[in-house]
Nucleic acid binder design. Structure first.
Lengths: 234, 234
DNA sequence: AGGAATTTGTGCGTATGTATC
DNA sequence: AGATACATACGCACAAATTCC
């Protein structure tokens, strides 16, 4: 008798494989066993396994080659929509973008936010973003509570979207950014160039997953004298 | 015997449905017949049809509700590059965006602009943009002089990008927007809510044609109290 | 309120096609 | 050419969600 609370087999299988990849037991470039063999060893049908594999493929974690095999793709490279939105220095030149996690907390969702995700709670991640070593923006990200049990600051040491993909199996496939100006918030965590209350550039973002569900909401305050917000569309 | 050059049935079916939507034969919100019925009328199996429908869903054209039905999701303004960048009212609600041409002139290119096009001259088009009847932004577009001999204001009565496409054979296929804040310029042409010199939202855009040549440069000042600049990425 | 009917979601099995080795 | 492996397509049974009466 199946557990009524359990996720579908194909989802459990996909998440299991994602965990294997995140844990390093499946390495980049590695070839999986043939689908028939995998299905047998997992105790599921080939069709169900194929649905799991298609899921991994759509998340960019697997490359499927007809006649050849299924290959793990675990590149820590930028993929997906975030490559198209970035902060860069206002006065020419590059400058490496970095992000320092200031705090992580699980809280009730903020009220002025648009609806996202099923949970009444969300993880609030506050970051101080810098470009070329210069603090340039404050960022507050709200991730729906149903997506992760707990998040520790060191989970996010690499990159936020890698954490999403590798640890949560979450790929943000569509975002909408709303831009304007807003006063700098008064955070206890952050030293930031402009004084609290001063009007700066402001971006509000909603992020959706592949199934079209809103899962993320974020706000960024940036110093327009130091940094520009860039959106690129192909 | 199946044509070896033909696409798979599920792909052909998906494209057929997409064409139906694009042609307006399937309207937004419309409910499709039950999958079993559709499959019969298309002469394919339910499984194959379901794969086509999943394709449409992943493209955001279809919403599938278990126990209810499959519903067309078609936002006609969501096509083309410029659909991804728009102004909308800050306080919810739609509101028809309009643009009034204030002046058109052929001038030397502005100096602080990034390079675009081969000519030393460019057409400068100034527009007053409104949303829902309320003036919300000033816009200045520079189009490389080599792209057109002369431009009359009434050429632009319809839409700037229709003029580009239909009269100049120019399709903007990539844009990059840089956002920040800037003081309102002191134009003689324009009545605009905020006083000249006041700091407002500011967007600087470079536009490229299909061959990757930069051809257009524009600047927009918008009142962040009235209007938000929205960038959407798929 | 509640049960029946409808509709999509999940899972399995099988046969055949096509690309790769 | 043959074997291997993924892709496509079909059909069926049951589960889960929604809708209708």
């Amino acid at each position: 008798m199946p557990d009524p609370n359990a996720l579908p087999i194909y989802q459990r299988t996909a998440e299991r494989l994602i965990r294997e990849i995140a844990a390093g037991r499946l390495l980049d470039g590695e070839r999986l066993p043939p689908e028939r063999d995998m299905a047998v060893s997992l105790g599921i049908s080939v069709g169900t396994l194929r649905k799991s594999l298609a899921d991994l493929q759509s998340r960019g974690l697997l490359e499927r080659r007809q006649g050849s095999g299924n290959y793990i793709r675990h590149q820590p490279e930028a993929s997906g929509v975030y490559a198209f939105f970035r902060l860069e220095l206002a006065k020419g030149g590059g400058g490496l973008p970095t992000a320092e996690v200031l705090s992580v907390a699980r809280l009730e969702k903020p009220r002025p936010a648009p609806g996202f995700g099923p949970s009444p709670e969300a993880h609030r991640i506050r970051r101080l973003r810098a470009v070329g070593g210069v603090p340039a923006a404050l960022e507050e990200i709200w991730l729906d509570g149903a997506r992760a049990e707990r998040i520790a600051p060191r989970d996010l040491s690499e990159s936020l979207y890698l954490f999403y993909r590798d640890r949560l199996g979450l790929v943000i496939s569509r975002v909408e950014d709303r831009l304007g100006t807003a006063p700098v918030p008064d955070w206890t965590e952050a030293p930031f160039g402009p004084t609290a209350g001063q009007t700066v550039g402001y971006v509000e973002r909603t992020g959706w997953d592949q199934e079209g569900r809103a899962v993320e909401f974020s706000r960024t305050w940036f110093d327009p004298d130091r940094v520009r917000y860039v959106a690129r569309m192909r």
